[in-house]
Write a protein that binds this DNA or RNA. Structure first.
Length: 247
DNA sequence: AAAGGTTTCAACCGCAATGGC
DNA sequence: AGCCATTGCGGTTGAAACCTT
């Protein structure tokens, strides 16, 4: 038998908190603390479940919460931490005093994610997402087509990053299908501009079918150290598409 | 001005971790 | 060791605000 959700009890309020409810909760916590969240609403006289009270306090009513927009420094910190930690919002929030995990998660999902583009670190995957995961080719076809200038700019930064990103990913053992696809895209765009041995046109670089093809090849090729070396060579233009296709 | 579309963010849900018995 | 209650976390939802046509 599955336990019913705590808020399923009849007669409990849900949704937006009223100012009176906030006041009751704050007054109670200031007086008695929040030793037991489950018992708290009853003790305080609130028609809410303990979970809802905890969330309201942690994300909104706590006195040390910082209000207002995130500063550039905070945004940079989030981006950096997300690169190394992934979606571990509570850990990221611990590094940003006054900011909540929920707030950081929202900021990330609303605009920081879009700011940094598609080469963010792979995220921990929920069971639900695994079920709904779309084909890798969608990622390629959804990619915006870079202009020549954008590519130039990208290559200037990704000359550094193509091999670096690959090696960073390898050293941290983050090797999943997103990694391979991203590695391909990064290495393709970098090498097409930096190496003549890579005979890829701009159209081919962003062509979804080639992306999918290479992804499939990489996937079947495996993920051991030799493969890493191969991919690094690929990224630096030492292996070309024909060789890749003949594997 | 109004309808429809998009974005934001507070709140909820379900699951995993933890701790007490 | 195993069960159960509680807490904490991350993903998701939906109402409200905002924007566009």
């Amino acid at each position: 038998m599955v336990r019913a959700p705590c808020c399923a009890r009849e007669g409990l309020n849900r949704g937006q908190w009223m100012p009176e409810e906030d006041k009751i909760l704050v007054d109670h916590i200031e007086k008695y603390g929040h030793g037991n969240w489950r018992a708290l609403p009853k003790q305080a006289g609130l028609l809410r479940c303990g979970k809802s009270c905890r969330l309201r306090w942690v994300n909104y009513l706590r006195p040390d919460i910082k209000r207002g927009n995130f500063t550039k420094e905070e945004e940079d910190t989030i981006i950096q931490l997300h690169q190394s930690l992934g979606n571990r919002w509570s850990v990221i929030a611990a590094k940003l005093p006054g900011r909540t995990d929920n707030e950081i998660k929202n900021v990330w999902n609303t605009y920081l994610k879009k700011q940094i583009g598609p080469f963010n670190t792979p995220q921990r995957e929920s069971k639900k997402n695994k079920k709904n995961k779309s084909a890798a080719s969608h990622m390629v076809s959804d990619m915006p087509v870079p202009t020549a200038t954008e590519q130039q700019q990208q290559s200037q930064t990704s000359d550094r990053s193509s091999a670096d990103i690959i090696e960073e990913s390898l050293s941290s053992k983050i090797v999943d299908e997103n990694f391979w696809l991203e590695a391909f895209i990064v290495s393709s765009s970098a090498s097409s501009l930096s190496s003549s041995s890579m005979d890829l046109t701009e159209a081919e670089i962003i062509n979804p079918s080639i992306g999918q093809q290479c992804f499939d090849l990489f996937s079947s090729y495996g993920t051991d150290d030799d493969d890493m070396e191969f991919l690094v060579n690929f990224s630096t233009g030492l292996v070309d598409l024909e060789e890749l296709s003949s594997l």
